[in-house]
Amino acid sequence: MSAATQGAKPYYFVPQPSPWPIFGACALLLMGTGAAFWFNGYEAGPWMCLAGFCVLVYMMFHWFGRVIDESEGRLYNKKVDISFRWSMSWFIFSEVMFFGAFFGALFYVRNISVPDLGGGTLTSHFLWPGYAAQWPTVGPFLKDVFTPMKAIGIPLLNTIILVTSGGTLTIAHHALKSGHRGSLKFWLFVTIVLGFSFVCLQAYEYHHAYTEFNLKLSSGVYGSTFFMLTGFHGFHVTIGATMLTVMLVRAFRGHFDAEHHFAFEAAAWYWHFVDVVWLLLFVLVYWLV
């Protein structure tokens, strides 16, 4: 219901008309067309993209701020809480399917397209003679030489960091449920630090790959799948860590109590999802080479 009926919770919650969705739509229009102009060499492109991004961030601040106000104003009842739980679960499922497309591509190139290009088929015999199908590869035509990523080293360290962060986040959650605010803030802070250090290490690893290993996004299908999978994962870690940072700010402002903290839980679900994707990445992209 509206903010006017604070106090008595109505059976259903229906929000007032809101100006923010149209901001989001305009932001995405600017970002989408901007990116298309940008990639085709128009100077206005990046600026349109930037403008769209600013509008998007502005919208998120206000829209999510409004939701937080409503939540802290105790306008949400049990039904709204259940709605949030359903929606977050299915949102994460959609993210799983998004990664599924790229994992599927990895499976396909490793098990079907690369063996076909080199493995004694007529195609390989006539079109790509002499190409030995092996993984990692730049493909039969490209001539770059690169060093593939090793699992031991930064990736292993990153695995440890991310798994640990899952643990510290759970400690923070337990602290929240038992009302230990100090402990909540501390362990949440530790989780965020671990999350951002993961991103920094990943950035360092990318830099290393480009400068030392000659491993680039354009290094054949190995480079394509490697950078797209780890890149989208890194992007999701950044989003997750940002969400957790918002939760930390809210914790400092005295939000959440032992029963009423689904925002925190949703961020935690998301964090665990990112965690699981990384484990898959570690095994399928780094380890089984």
Binding site: V109, S113, G139
Partner: peptide, 29 residues
């Protein structure tokens, strides 16, 4: 729908960022 998003994203990177998902020369298909 997320799978379609993934598919067109791969098209986009093949078009502009030199990936080889759909290019046999780079080991794709």
């Amino acid at each position: 729908m997320p799978v379609l998003a993934g598919a067109v994203t791969m098209l986009l990177t093949d078009r502009h960022f030199g990936t080889s998902f759909f290019d046999a020369a780079g080991g794709g298909d």
